[in-house]
């Protein structure tokens, strides 16, 4: 109570940044800060910056989880949103199906604020329940960073039909696991897990993403596609960093 509000706000900000950067799947710092006393609660809840990074609490009861997300989004006012939906936070003994269903409702709620989404990180077992929401992301004008990781059955790659073109050109950083996507043209960083990539796919990748500077490929699956007899080397002018 003796500390000036400016100092307390600074502590909240540093704590929130630290939580976000080091352990986002643990108890959120803004929640800790707002649990201390009435004064701190008022102060924390009136600072939208603390709430602009949201981790869907899938370990809570369904209703509580969805209420949290709505409340959280409301507290962030009109700031750009960064969101994580990761089923590592699943409730013990809740079935995989029930977790996926809740995650799908959470993503629906989050994508209602599509115009404010800056970063979205989804990591789930199954893709099918969130497919429609992901396709809706093509309308998210401010989305910069997107991570879509689906464990799914091993060696199965889910293809989103190219016609759906689910990603807006604002996306510059993309990570995908078990998902074949049309890469957005302004991409600078791409991380792929288990992609099936041959000569032709690589050609499409670099001609479609002329600014791609960082590429990380986990478990590359080479494709035995026919290589043109007179193949020319694919020039990846923009690429600065490559890890396979």
């Amino acid at each position: 109570a003796d500390l000036p509000n400016e100092i307390i706000s600074q502590i909240f900000l540093v704590g929130t940044t630290d939580w976000r950067n080091t352990a986002p799947l643990t108890l959120p710092f803004p929640v800790i800060a707002s649990s201390i006393c009435y004064h701190w609660r008022q102060l924390a809840r009136s600072n939208p910056v603390l709430w602009s990074f949201l981790v869907a609490p899938l370990h809570k009861e369904d209703e509580d989880c969805l209420y949290w997300i709505s409340d959280w989004i409301g507290l962030s006012a009109n700031l750009p949103l960064s969101v994580v939906v990761d089923d590592k936070l699943r409730r013990p003994r809740r079935s995989s199906e029930a977790t996926n269903r809740l995650a799908s409702e959470a993503v629906t709620l989050i994508t209602q604020s599509w115009n404010r989404l800056r970063s979205l990180d989804i990591s789930l077992d199954s893709f099918s329940l969130v497919k429609n929401q992901i396709i809706q992301l093509r309308h998210a004008p401010n989305l910069r960073q997107l991570s879509l990781c689906f464990r799914g059955p091993p060696f199965a790659t889910i293809f989103i039909p190219e016609v759906d073109r689910p990603l807006p050109p604002s996306v510059t950083k993309l990570r995908a696991q078990n998902l074949a996507l049309q890469s957005p043209c302004n991409l600078t960083s791409l991380t792929m897990h288990k992609p099936r990539l041959g000569y032709e796919g690589t050609q499409i990748l670099f001609s479609g993403c002329p600014n791609l500077a960082n590429l990380i490929i986990h478990n590359l699956v080479p494709v035995n596609s026919p290589i043109p007899a007179k193949r020319t080397e694919i020039r990846a002018e923009s690429l600065q960093s490559l890890a396979i």
Binding site: L197, T202, P222, R231, I234, R235, I244
Partner: peptide, 17 residues
């Protein structure tokens, strides 16, 4: 090696295989 065999990367400053 297969992947790198058909790529030309003139501005590469970091490579990890």
């Amino acid at each position: 090696v297969y992947f790198l065999s058909f790529l030309k990367i003139p501005n590469l400053s970091y490579l990890e295989v």
